[in-house]
């Protein structure tokens, strides 16, 4: 009974404009979407807010749409909706795999994809696939809309490119012909848990040559990260087990893990290599 929300003002705007206006006008206000992180943090005093602006009633923030060249995901779309969306299964299987590993059915029915990104945890599960897909984030603010590539979105530990008066509106993913993907999450138990390391990989292989490849990880740096140098070392090369085993080691130089209650920096480095190797093996279709 001590886990009580402090007294707060609560707003539930119907439009994005209204939400932005509230964030500007109401002092100490914060956006709430699913609340599965924020409410727990507020009840245990890890997060503070004087007012909450609930974005769940803003229709344009919800849903998954196939717009031909791109897939648009409303930021307040529930994780469970993503899991059940044929558009996601068909076009963004890597994202689906990550969402499938997240939390429980109950939590997935509350939590949103935008919330997962804006909370900016180094362990954010939707971040590695979206970093690999190079999603574009559409952000609404006083001046209208602006677009930020997800690779520029995470600016530091639990920090993002969002200003306090902005709202994440859409996640846009350009469709591309990937020939394979791999996703592996390592947690301390089989489910309902934060990752120790997770690796997402996407690849396009033509005639045995790696045309393009992307690798992203979480829980191994202050923010979720891409492994650009590893990608570079693979691009244009012929797919082979030897190459992979050699190059996957590069991942370790691109991360800066720490010791914490979940694991050690040493183990995270070791597993970043192992998981990158496994995810790439899957994505590249290496025998």
């Amino acid at each position: 009974m001590y886990y009580k929300l402090p007294r707060i003002e609560y707003y539930r705007p119907k439009t994005l404009e209204e939400a932005v206006r509230l964030l500007e006008e109401v002092e100490g206000s914060k956006v709430i979407a699913g609340g599965t992180d924020l409410l727990v943090d507020m009840k245990t005093s890890r997060a503070k807010a004087r007012a909450l602006v609930d974005v769940n009633s803003i229709a344009e923030l919800r849903g998954v749409e196939d717009l031909g060249e791109v897939v648009r995901i409303g930021a307040a779309t529930k994780l469970q909706e993503l899991l059940e969306s044929p558009i996601i299964s068909e076009n963004l299987p890597l994202l689906r795999a990550a969402v499938e590993s997240m939390a429980s059915w109950q939590i997935r029915n509350m939590a949103t994809i935008g919330g997962n990104l804006c909370n900016a945890s180094p362990a954010a599960d939707t971040a590695p696939p979206l970093l690999a897909y190079e999603a574009e984030l559409v952000i609404a603010g006083r001046g209208g809309l602006r677009t930020v590539p997800i690779t520029k979105f995470f600016t530091g530990y639990r920090r993002t490119a969002l200003s306090p008066t902005e709202v994440l509106k859409d996640i846009i993913v350009r469709k591309s012909e990937w020939t394979g993907w791999g996703y592996i999450k390592l947690g301390r138990r089989g489910g309902f848990t934060l990752s120790v390391v997770a690796v997402a990989a996407l690849a396009r292989v033509r005639d045995g040559v790696i045309e393009d490849v992307r690798i992203a990880l979480n829980s191994v740096a202050p923010t979720p990260v891409r492994a650009y140098r590893t990608e570079e070392a693979l691009r244009g090369r012929e797919v082979s087990r030897d190459l992979l085993e050699k190059v996957a080691r590069t991942v370790v130089d691109e991360i800066s893990p720490i010791d914490d209650v979940r694991s050690t920096a040493w183990y995270r480095r070791e597993m970043s290599y192992r998981l990158a190797l496994d995810a790439l093996t899957e994505a590249l279709g290496v025998k």
Binding site: R188, R189, G190, G191, F192, T193, L194, V261
Partner: peptide
Amino acid sequence: IVNDNLTDYVIPTSHE
């Protein structure tokens, strides 16, 4: 005790 909550102190679930 650093992990004084059930996010940071993990116990088995039905998966185990």
